[in-house]
C-alpha cells in the first residue's frame, strides 16, 4: 500500500491540515507528499522534514500557482498509478480538488473521513454529524478527504524524505485566478486553535460581537468563531462560520456565546473536549451538549468572565 498526500499551502507555508492528512495516510501505508505550486521549493523542504514521509514530489511551475483544481487534477491523475490511496485534508482546497481527481480516475471518493477501519473501510459523518456511516470501497484505488480534527498532527521533525521533481502536465486553460481576499485576524487559526470563543445572533450587532469577543479571545489566546446566524447578520466574516457548511473544529475548550445550538452548528463543534455555553434562554439546545452551562445575559457575563480569567492569569 502506498499513499499520496496532496499538500496544501497557506501563504508560502505548509498548511497544518497537511500534517493531519499525513498521520491519516500513515495508517494506510507508505506516505509520499505532492507539493504543487509556484515557487514552492521551501514548502518542499518543510514537507521533507515531516516524520514518516518517504518522498516529496515537487511540481513547481507557474501553471500551479493559485491551486486551481483544473490544473492540479491532471497532475495528480498522472501520479495516481503508483498509489493505492490518494488523501487530502477536507479543507476548501481538498474538497475542491479531490472529487475532480476521483472522477478523472473513475473512482468514488469518501468525504470527510473521521476514522480508518482498514485500507478499504472508512467511517465518516452524514446528516450533519447526526449519524456515522461505515463504508467499504470495492475499488482498487481509494480517494479520501480526511477531517483534520479527527487525526493528530504528524511531527514536523525527524523526516528524511527525498525530493523528486515532477514536470508539469499540459492542461487546457479553463479558469483564471483574479484575486484573493484573506480575512485578517490577530487571533490563532480557527481550525487549529486550542480554545475557540464563538458568538451567535445573541450578540445583537457587529459592534457587540467585536467588543465582547475580541477581548475574551485575546485573554485566552483563542480563535473566534461564529454561528451561521451571526455570519448572515454580518456580525462576523463568512470564514468564521463553525458548522456543517462552515468549519469543523474540535478544540480543548469551545465557548458558545449567544448561540442557540442548531443541528447545523453542533455538527461543527460537538467534538470539542470541553464545551461551555452562555445563553439567556435556559431551553436553548446548546445546553444539551454543553459540559458547563450558564444561563445569563451575555452582556454582563462576558466582561465578568474576562475579568475573572485575567485575575487567575496574574
Amino acid at each position: 500500500m502506498s499513499v499520496l498526500i496532496i499538500a496544501e499551502q497557506q501563504q508560502s507555508c505548509l498548511d497544518e491540515a497537511t500534517l493531519s492528512a499525513v498521520s491519516a495516510g500513515r495508517q494506510l501505508g507508505e506516505v509520499d507528499i505532492l507539493v504543487a505550486g509556484h515557487n514552492v521549493a521551501e514548502i518542499a523542504i518543510q514537507a521533507q522534514q515531516i516524520d514518516g514521509v518517504r518522498k516529496v514530489l515537487l511540481a513547481d511551475a507557474t501553471v500551479y500557482a493559485h491551486a486551481l483544481a483544473e490544473t492540479l487534477a491532471p497532475l495528480v491523475v498522472q501520479l495516481a498509478d503508483s498509489y493505492s490511496h490518494i488523501v487530502a485534508a477536507a479543507t476548501s482546497f481538498g474538497k475542491n480538488l479531490l472529487p475532480r481527481v476521483a472522477a478523472l480516475l473513475d473512482c468514488a471518493p469518501v468525504s470527510d473521513v473521521t476514522s480508518i477501519v482498514d485500507t478499504q473501510t472508512f467511517i465518516h459523518p452524514i446528516y450533519a454529524g447526526n449519524a456515522l456511516q461505515t463504508v467499504r470501497s470495492q475499488q482498487s484505488k481509494q480517494l479520501l478527504t480526511i477531517r483534520t480534527t479527527a487525526f493528530s498532527l504528524a511531527e514536523l521533525t525527524g523526516g528524511q524524505a527525498v525530493i523528486e521533481h515532477i514536470a508539469p502536465v499540459a492542461v487546457p486553460q479553463l479558469s483564471r485566478f483574479i484575486d484573493l481576499q484573506l480575512t485578517e485576524s490577530e487571533h490563532p487559526e480557527l481550525t487549529t486553535a486550542k480554545i475557540v470563543v464563538s458568538g451567535g445572533r445573541g450578540l445583537g450587532s457587529a459592534e457587540n460581537f467585536a467588543a465582547l469577543l475580541d477581548p475574551l479571545a485575546d485573554t485566552l489566546n483563542a480563535a473566534i468563531g461564529a454561528s451561521r446566524a451571526a455570519v448572515d447578520a454580518d456580525y462576523a466574516p463568512n470564514d468564521y462560520q463553525v458548522g456543517q457548511t462552515g468549519k469543523i473544529v474540535a478544540p480543548d475548550l469551545y465557548i458558545a456565546i449567544g448561540i442557540s445550538g442548531a443541528i447545523q452548528h453542533l455538527a461543527g463543534m460537538k467534538d470539542s473536549k470541553v464545551i461551555v455555553a452562555i445563553n439567556k434562554d435556559a431551553d436553548a439546545p446548546i445546553f444539551k451538549v454543553a459540559d458547563y452551562g450558564l444561563v445569563a445575559d451575555l452582556h454582563t457575563a462576558v466582561p465578568e468572565l474576562i475579568q475573572q480569567i485575567k485575575a487567575i492569569a496574574c
Binding site: 452524514i126 456515522l132 461505515t134 467499504r136 470501497s137 475499488q139
Partner: peptide, 30 residues
C-alpha cells in the same frame, strides 16, 4: 455503487453536562 454501506451508527453521546450558577463558579470549574 462503488461504495457499500456496512452500517450507520449514532455518534457517541456526550456525557451530561452541568449548569453553573454564575461566572465565578464557571471560571472556578474551568
Amino acid at each position: 455503487p462503488r461504495l457499500i454501506q456496512l452500517k450507520v451508527t449514532e455518534p457517541a453521546a456526550r456525557s451530561a453536562g452541568m449548569m453553573v450558577e454564575n461566572v465565578t463558579e464557571l471560571v472556578d470549574r474551568l
